[in-house]
């Protein structure tokens, strides 16, 4: 069963002795439902990864970083949660995110979706859906509402951040432009 897009899985493992970019590895690409599951069943669940690791699944050709021209003016819908919730929610939310991506759950707005990232961190894990620059607020909010429904989350649990704000912040937290 062919997917609408070819997707790439990236793995990031934090090694402070190397540059950030050198810690990011392209694992493989896939473009069928069957190859997606073969890959998913073969790799560790996010909850089994060590702190400092990320998975990123992006449309093939888009690098999972702010600097990519498709991401630069975009933003992300972000879910973050404490370690307490990790084992019950992290793996479920990541899988639901992947199913939204490969199934093209955002319909026409799926074109604006670049990919998704899960960050495993000591304090708070994060899952984010990355989007390119959108033509309207309504489109950003539409994607957010569909995404929140896919994740089956309560209200005020996902926030939209503009990448440019995140890239230029110093120590202050990145503000949420929208919260759903």
């Amino acid at each position: 069963h062919p997917l609408n897009s070819r997707w790439a899985l990236w793995f990031f493992k934090n090694d402070r002795s190397r540059a950030w970019r050198d810690n990011l590895q392209l694992v493989t690409t896939f473009d069928t439902v069957e190859d997606f599951w073969a890959l998913y069943n073969h790799i560790q669940l996010p909850s089994k990864l060590s702190s400092g690791c990320d998975y990123a699944v992006f449309k093939d050709g888009i690098q999972p970083m702010w600097e990519d021209s498709r991401n630069k003016k975009g933003g992300r819908w972000l879910v973050s949660f404490s370690r307490q919730g990790r084992y019950s929610e992290l793996d479920r939310l990541w899988l639901e995110t992947l199913l939204c991506l490969i199934g093209e759950s955002f319909e026409e707005q799926s074109r604006a979706v670049c990919g998704a990232v899960v960050n495993i961190r000591t304090k708070r894990d994060k899952i984010a859906l990355w989007m390119r620059e959108m033509e309207s607020q309504a489109a950003v909010l539409h994607i957010g509402r569909v995404y929140k429904e896919c994740l089956d989350l309560p209200t005020k649990t996902i926030g939209y951040q503009v990448h440019a704000d995140a890239a230029t912040r110093s120590n202050s937290p990145v503000k949420h432009k929208f919260v759903l």
């Binding site: 069963h1 062919p2 997917l3 609408n4 439902v33 599951w37 998913y40 199913l99 490969i102 799926s110």
Partner: peptide
């Protein structure tokens, strides 16, 4: 062209099919 869309239920059913 036409967008290829799969719902969650179908994708999950494919998980364990040979």
């Amino acid at each position: 062209g036409t967008r290829i869309i799969y719902d969650r239920k179908f994708l999950l059913e494919c998980k364990n099919s040979p």
